[in-house]
């Protein structure tokens, strides 16, 4: 599904350059559950950004379904992010001005889904993550766990092929984190590809494959 070939990422800080990734190459097959692990500052988030085309690599080639998408125009990149990927962030990243329902509806509006259709699907998704009674609540009125479940519903709104989750449980107490993980495992069972960054070894065990990163290099890879 995704193939990275010698991907490099250097941050230009004016007088110095920080190399966050050195020639990382690996592949993600459809239907996989991949965990990315490594110490703080090793480049996990940088790698996630590149996989999710939130950032462009400064070297190497990115293949999506065998197409070279290393340097696509903004509009195409936005479309891929919108319809192929679903993002789940450590700090939830919901819009505080919008209700749970509206947060879930938002990515569908960029996909051109009609209002009523958006609304219907958002209600279904919120129901699916167990929040049918919280649809018109603003994020500030929801607990952390509930907020992250809204974020998952939002990530699923355009039926993505790939879920990218950067430390999705990092801001949650253990039991709420477990709820989120259960949802992800369910999604994986239904056929969704998942790439998740985690610091937690136990969570890593749930993945089929663990990629260890150290100082911007692929240190080791464990398959189960």
């Amino acid at each position: 599904m995704i193939r990275l070939d010698k991907i490099q990422k250097k941050y230009d800080l004016g007088d110095t350059e920080v190399a966050a990734l050195h020639e990382v190459s690996f592949e993600i097959t459809a239907g996989e559950f991949v965990a990315i692990m490594g110490p703080s500052g090793s480049g996990k988030s940088t790698l996630m950004n590149i996989i999710g085309i939130l950032d462009n690599a400064t070297g190497g080639t990115y293949y999506l379904e065998d197409y070279d998408i290393t340097a696509l125009p903004d509009k195409e990149q936005a479309r891929i992010r919108n319809t192929h990927f679903g993002f789940i962030f450590q700090s939830f990243n919901l819009f505080p001005e919008l209700s749970a329902m509206e947060n879930v509806m938002l990515p569908m509006s960029y996909a051109g889904v009609a209002y009523n259709e958006r609304k219907k699907r958002a209600a279904e998704l919120l129901d699916q993550v167990g929040l049918s009674h919280r649809m018109s609540h603003l994020p500030t009125m929801l607990s952390g766990g509930e907020q992250q479940r809204v974020a998952i519903a939002r990530a699923l709104s355009n039926k993505p092929n790939l879920i990218l989750a950067d430390e999705p449980t990092g801001n949650l107490p253990t039991d709420k984190g477990q709820e989120v993980l259960d949802i992800l495992t369910d999604l994986h069972k239904q056929g969704t590809t998942i790439v998740m960054v985690t610091h937690n070894d136990a969570q890593g065990e749930m993945a089929q494959r663990v990629i260890n990163i150290r100082d911007g290099l692929l240190a080791s890879e464990v398959r189960r």
């Binding site: 999710g52 939130l54 903004d74 509009k75 936005a78 479309r79 992010r81 919108n82 319809t83 993002f87 962030f89 990243n93 819009f95 938002l106 990515p107 960029y110 996909a111 939002r154 355009n158």
Partner: peptide
């Protein structure tokens, strides 16, 4: 900036 970043991650183009 963060809000804009999230909008773009969710599929907003520059034009949007």
């Amino acid at each position: 900036r963060k809000q804009i970043g999230i909008l773009k991650a969710l599929g907003a183009t520059r034009r949007d």
